[in-house]
Amino acid sequence: MTAMIALQKVSLSYKGAGAAAVQNLDLDIPAKTFFVLIGESGCGKTTTLHLINRLLEPDQGRVLVEGIDVRTVDPVTLRRGMGFIFQAIGLFPHLTVAENIGITPKLLGWAPGRITARVDELLDLVRLEPATYRDRRPAALSGGQRQRVGLARALAAEPRVMLMDEPFGALDPLTRDDLAAEYRTIHETLGLTTVLVTHDMTEALLLADEIAVMRAGGIVQTGTPRTLLDAPADDFVRTLIETPKRRARLLAEATGLGPPA
């Protein structure tokens, strides 16, 4: 089976910066996989994500989506076929919730009736009561509600690929866990291929089918959470993968040393 998304020997360096943002990157993302890119700030994970929908163009190498070189596709068409979510969400403040969600279908020229129906369907999917939220402005929503709308907007044009850049990063922990779990279900139900960027290993371990650990513009190791836990490629991967365990231990120690309840 060919990969849904493939990066082949991809390199990109930003003008003025000395080191390459990503270097000689190879990545195969099978269809319907929940794929997580993890690493420290500046390791090139966001750059990698942006290379997939041509927000960035590689200096060298090829990016293939469903076997087709993305350079042969009009970038605007390419992006309309993919869902894109990022931490800042970027809801358009001058548009209502319904108009925000319906933007890509509108750009694709869907009939207004079809857009309205789709918007209500998506609001239900992300658990926002359509009648209550349809006509609100983003300013009248909480952070969690905003990201739900962001999610609905990304899903609006029935994409097969979802690109997510720390989508839950700015949310409070409870909302974050709820929304992450809900999204995992949506991913399954709709049969999506999801590429999610995060620096939170707990999130990665909870969500991912497959994880790629990045460091300094390159891939250190790719594998299932199990593989990474059992056979980390080096000390860096081991330290990273053990973060949740280490934090749990620290937490136990901290609460254990405290006065009895």
Partner: peptide
């Protein structure tokens, strides 16, 4: 203009002209 909105506009598939006129 908030740069996040420009990124969002490109992300949802707007052309440069649409980004200008719609956002």
């Amino acid at each position: 203009t908030d740069p996040a909105l420009i990124t969002a506009a490109r992300g949802v598939g707007m052309t440069r002209r649409q980004t200008l006129t719609m956002v």
